[in-house]
Design a protein around this nucleic acid. Structure first.
Length: 490
RNA sequence: GGUUCCUUGGCCGAGUGGCUAGGCAGCGGUCUGCAAAACCGUGUACGGCGGUUCGACUCCGCCAGGAACCUCCA
């Protein structure tokens, strides 16, 4: 199998991927902040890194995949003193316990991920369950002199850190630029510099989520959880850290700074970032209010949706673009994906029915090689899918008799499609098919097909068409092929 | 304002210094009672202006338009 190359944000280049320990990969991905329903934009990183997880596994690696749940410490507004914990704010609005809010949206998130056939991570740690670990990181940073306490809060001393290490290496900034471009905000008197970030925040009296510490009753800064939890579960150095591009700065930059300030070494070897999903050319974001939730997509209940889109259509839509490119949402694009996916899936069914010949006129080895080469080239799923469609044409041609395939090649092709479509791309069958498990429905449809057959034999086209059209109206599609009638539930 | 990036045919979306991306839609044909599906064939392209080069959609510069980050964000 070809060598895997991945684009490393740190070097801004594609690099050959070599895990720290051969055959084992440590992968950390920033998970959701569970304070409202997940939208289409959120689906992208989890599908992207699910593809990575699946492909690494397929290549024979044992992958420990850690994806956190942010359930504390994530400020609504960075304006200090005014900032309010997102979870706590939502809790007040909905009159729920903070952990009730967390549970509610975490459940929805898990259901959505399950619908999208996203593999659950090996470990899904929650920030609120790792306060002690986070405090330990703060102690380490304080001990090394890269943080200071002010008024019960602890801040990271970016300037001091930058003198010894380089702050901004991931996002390609330098501190001088940040200095001249950072807005001056009120209520930051505690900080030495406006670009310093909180490691521990003293909680205001009305703040519900709070933990004791030697500095104050308070809560940890947002950037800290990923540092603490990735170290705990993957070690002081690990292979891949992923997340959305919008997290590059400041979140991931701060994570690097925290780890380096605490231990003197960096922890992540490959940083990977997926691009955004846009709508009308603009990033889909909760704060911009231009989002469509996954549940709305699945049910078609958002006003700009012309129809509902199944989870696999969404997954396929996302996989049809490279993860580092933006994808623009539109009904037209989603409909194209839906049809394309249908074509791919029906070819898979056809593949199962192919009959082998003496020798092949098709080149399976080359198809496989090109497809895996694409996946190994920084997860180029759109190219891999393009090759899969070349294979669809091949499969249909074999069925039509214009191409032939040997028994050995046929087995090879079946195995290949199963591996790539189901195991690596993570697509799955949706809906019933004629050969499905609903025997009652199947029997009824067979009965109607036979009635229609009789009508056709009598050249009673009116009855024949009526059966076909009315079945179609209730969602059952008939196709007359030369081998007989095929039917499927749409 | 700073940093980074993008601009591909009707739509989505890859990629490359010279060789068909792919999907959806369209068109012509085969098949069919009709339709659908399938098969065969087929058109349309690289924002603008310069430069480098034997040759640029691909490299460089300028311009125009757009985006992301710089504050929470997947």
């Amino acid at each position: 199998m070809s060598q895997l190359y991945i684009y490393n944000t740190l070097s801004r280049k594609k690099e050959a991927f070599e895990p720290l320990v051969e055959g084992r990969v440590g992968l950390y991905v920033c998970g959701p902040t569970v304070y409202s329903n997940s939208h289409l934009g959120h689906a992208r990183p989890f599908i992207t890194f699910d593809l990575l997880y699946r492909y690494l596994t397929f290549l024979g690696n044992k992958v420990r995949y850690v994806r956190n749940i942010t359930d504390v410490g994530h400020l609504e507004d960075e304006v200090e003193g005014v900032g309010e914990d997102r979870i706590a704010k939502k809790a007040r609005l909905e009159q729920l316990e903070p952990m009730e809010v967390v549970q509610k949206y975490m459940n929805t998130f898990h259901r959505n991920m399950d619908d999208l056939n996203v593999t659950p991570p090996s470990i899904e740690p929650r920030a609120s369950g790792h306060i002690i670990e986070q405090i330990q990181v703060i102690e380490g940073i304080l001990k090394n002199g890269y943080a200071y306490e002010a008024n019960g809060s602890v801040y990271f001393d970016v300037e001091k850190y930058n003198n010894d290490y380089k702050y901004g290496k991931l996002s390609g900034r330098n501190l001088d630029d940040i200095k001249t471009n950072t807005r001056k905000l009120d209520g930051q008197d505690e900080k030495k510099n406006s670009f310093d970030f909180a490691l521990w925040k003293k909680a205001a009296p009305e703040h519900i989520m709070r933990w004791p510490s030697r500095w104050s009753d308070g809560f940890p800064g947002w950037h800290l959880e990923c540092s603490a939890m990735s170290t705990k579960y993957l070690g002081e150095q690990f292979d891949i850290h992923g997340g959305g591009m919008d997290l590059t700065f400041p979140h991931h930059e701060c994570e690097i700074a925290q780890n380096t300030a605490c231990r003197g070494t960096e922890s992540v070897r490959y940083w990977m970032h997926n691009n955004m999903i846009t709508i009308n050319g603009q990033k889909m974001a909760r704060s911009l209010g231009n989002f469509i939730t996954l549940d709305e997509l699945f049910t078609g209940t958002h006003e700009i949706l012309e129809q509902s889109y199944s989870p696999m259509t969404i997954r396929f839509f996302i996989l049809q673009a490279h993860y580092r490119s933006t994808i623009d949402f539109s009904n037209e694009a989603l409909q194209a994906s839906e049809k394309g996916l249908e074509r791919l899936m029906s070819a898979l069914k056809t593949l199962g029915e192919l009959v082998a010949s003496e020798a092949s006129t098709v080149d399976i080895a080359s198809l496989k090689e090109k497809c895996f080469a694409a996946l190994s080239d920084d997860l180029n799923s759109p190219i891999a899918i393009a090759h899969l469609f070349d294979g669809v044409k091949m499969i249909n041609s074999i069925k039509a008799g214009t191409e032939k395939i040997s028994a050995a090649d046929l087995e090879d092709l079946k195995e290949f499609y199963k591996a790539v479509v189901f195991d690596v791309l993570g697509l799955k069958e949706e809906g019933e098919t004629g050969s499905g498990n609903n025997e009652v429905l199947g029997g009824a449809v067979e009965l109607l097909i036979n009635l229609r057959k009789d009508a056709k034999a009598n050249k009673d086209w009116g009855t024949a068409d009526k059966i076909r059209d009315e079945l179609n109206a209730i969602g059952i599609e008939l196709k007359d092929t030369k081998d007989g009638v095929e039917w499927s539930v749409k």
